[in-house]
Amino acid sequence: MTPPTQATFDARPLTEPVDPRAVRAFAAELRARGTATMNAGAIIAVVVIALSAVIMVPVLVSVMVAVLSGSVSGGRGGLIPFALIGVAAVLGIVLSLAGWRRARTTRYRLNRFAQANGMTYEARIADPPLPGMVFGIGRSRASTDVVRGTTPRFAEFGNFQYTTGSGKNSTTHNWGYVAVKLDVPLPNIVLDAKGNNSFGSNLPAAFRKAQRLSLEGDFDRYFDLYCPEGYESDALYLFTPDIMARFIDNAAELDVEIVDDWLFLYTQRKASTLDPATWAWLFGAVGALLVKLDQWARWRDERLLVANPPLASSAGQARDATALPFAAPAGMLTPPPGVAHEGRRLSRGFRWVPIVVAVVFGVVWIALQAIGSMH
């Protein structure tokens, strides 16, 4: 993906008219590739049409014949309730089919949009192998409408959903995300954007408060930054004032996670959409960050040198690396790319606010019930 600018960002395929034949052909191509997906509208359409064909249509025909032949009490007025049911069924079919067709058109537009901007499109990826915090939760995990680019580095834009709970208590969670491949693994760092929070953090994971790091300037007004304990100086190295300014200017409404050799941007609305303004916003955020990610490639975890001391000689003494003719001069030994174990993942915390709210609500409800029983 070339860093998008106003000159190279082509949003026309998102809104310009489409050829219905081309849409049908692309839908057939997705089915042949096994990547076609049925959304809720398509499922509802199939169910409604099937029920109407099997139950509603024969019943309505029988009633109409009976009324017209005069064998139903009330004359033609007796047809009104069934006519209303029939109209509701037809309206449901029309709306469901419209949703199904709209979903097919959306996939076709996004595919053309990806091609116009030098990227590729995938309709659905089941259980995507990404290490971000949202991708390992729940069940029925899937990314949809995935748009990918590879130049100057790999970047993926998509919508992700997963389900938690079961039965009547099941909940489907939806996220939009951008995944950017980095040059080297980095410590697990999370930037919880304050601009998209409501009652506390909107992130699906909580982190121990001891890992919270306060940065200089206005950064704390926009983000809560979490880094593994002992990696505070490394976070300061990565988040220099110029990079902090870019996050504030371009990603203040996005939650950010660095994990392994990935940078994730999260939003609770769709990231892959037909809205040109959303793409301009996300392209602008990624493009602004890409030009600064090269300096992150120079970061090294000094703990890896401690974890891998010089080999011991057969006499049990540490071998002097500087005595070897092919060794680096003293002071110039550099650890390999990577992160020590203690920096790979943040320690998870526990959210008390929802529990406190639930307890208070329960106490109030019980009190109201008790007061009501006294009257």
Rank of each mutant, 00 (worst) to 15 (best):
L203N: 14
P152Y: 00
H173G: 03
R141M: 04
G118R: 00
Y108K: 01
A179P: 13
R112Y: 09
K209V: 11
I93R: 11
A114Q: 07
A155Y: 05
V184Y: 08
S140D: 15
Q211D: 04
G176E: 01
N174Y: 12
G165E: 00
T163E: 05
T106I: 04
G200T: 05
R212P: 04
V184R: 10
I93P: 08
V134D: 13
Q115E: 15
A89C: 07
S214V: 09
V184Q: 09
S166L: 09
T150W: 02
F113S: 14
L215T: 01
F154M: 14
I125W: 06
F135M: 07
V90E: 09
Y177W: 04
A116G: 10
N169Q: 15
K168A: 13
M119N: 08
A155I: 14
F113W: 15
V180K: 03
L186S: 04
V180S: 02
R208I: 11
T163L: 04
D192P: 08
M133A: 12
D145C: 01
N169D: 13
A103N: 06
Q115F: 13
L213H: 08
P185V: 04
R109M: 11
S96K: 10
V190F: 12
A114N: 06
A89V: 07
G195C: 04
V146N: 00
A205T: 13
G118C: 02
N111I: 04
S198Q: 08
R153D: 01
G165R: 00
A103S: 09
I93T: 15
T151R: 07
T105S: 11
L97H: 15
T164F: 00
T163S: 02
N111T: 10
Q161N: 11
M119K: 08
L191G: 06
T164M: 01
I93L: 14
L110R: 10
R102Q: 06
P204H: 09
N174I: 03
W100I: 01
V147T: 03
K194S: 10
A155M: 12
N174V: 07
N196G: 04
F135A: 05
N188F: 11
N111C: 13
V134W: 05
Q115P: 11
A103W: 02
S140P: 10
D127H: 12
A210R: 13
W175G: 04
T163G: 01
V190P: 10
A210W: 07
R139K: 15
A98L: 15
R102N: 08
S214D: 12
M119W: 14
T150A: 12
D183W: 12
A210L: 13
R212S: 12
F160Y: 14
S143K: 00
N196E: 04
G176L: 01
F135E: 06
Q211F: 03
V146S: 00
I125D: 06
V94F: 13
G132P: 07
V184K: 09
A89L: 06
L213C: 04
N202K: 11
L215F: 06
A126Q: 12
G136N: 13
T172W: 02
A155H: 12
D192L: 11
S170W: 04
N188P: 08
